[in-house]
Amino acid sequence: MSLALSLVPLLAAGQLGVVTLDINQASEISIGADDCGTSKTGTWTVAFTGYACSSLSLWVTQGDCGDAIATGDLKIADIAQSAINANRSQSSTVSIAIDKLPAFAAAAADGGAVCGSAGVEVDHKFCAAVSVYTDLTCFTKSTVRATTPVTIHYDTKAPGAPSVSAEALDSAAAVTVSYDSDTESLDVQARIQGEEEFVTLGQLASPNTNKTIDGLENGVTYEVQAIAYDSVGNASEASAIATVTPRKSSGFWESCVAAGCNNGGCSTTPAALGLATLAAMLLLRRRVRR
């Protein structure tokens, strides 16, 4: 008894074992409608100095993990106590069916959204817990939880529509896009005014906001729009259309040529002469008179 009491301070969680989880070697995954009907493979790993006093419970919940599976959570697996104690450092995998995540089970029961419904954005946690003790008497148990539960971010909610402005350049347009924080990338599209189809002329990745579209024809009016995508690939509504008409402009060189500038024929002679002189300086090894 006195021995058991003296061991009580050692029973703090984390000192007798560690449980880690991942899905595809990540601590957070994002999934969308395309993942409905599929499963994700979760990996659990235990490393114990003590002994398991219960099965290793694995589940998915919408809230905080807690110490045990709760009503409404999705049970993934129970790894038997004997199996854990037989090998106290081991790893294995489990399958998590996306269709059966708690948010969809509750919604389906209410006749609400199911997996694949648009406009849903919900986080789940992949959790694990097991009771441990220093020996198999399991005299005083403590609970070891997964060090970092894995977040399963289900998102079929499209990002907000971006807004676009376009500035006319010479045979080009400078497009500036603003978008909400959910956006990860954008397609910048353009069409000649009056035509039907937009053509994607470039992509932007967050946090960039500027894109130059080259190869346009001066004097022709183009309509420009952008479509935002989040990390799952949900597409926003197209932005409002901005119009731009590229126009001829003169840079410094054109103005200079008009006033009589020349480029010397781009002769390489002076360059070669200069570089040879510089090289000669560097190679100079004449001793310095002291």
Binding site: D170, A172, W253, E254, C256, N263, P270, A271
Partner: peptide, 26 residues
């Protein structure tokens, strides 16, 4: 002194006809 110079317009070296906006002065 040898100076290599070039003229930018947008993100490209500007050209006028066949005259590139780049050259050398010494």
């Amino acid at each position: 002194q040898v100076v290599h110079w070039w003229v930018m317009k947008g993100n490209q070296t500007e050209s006028v006809g066949t005259a590139a906006g780049a050259g050398w002065s010494y």
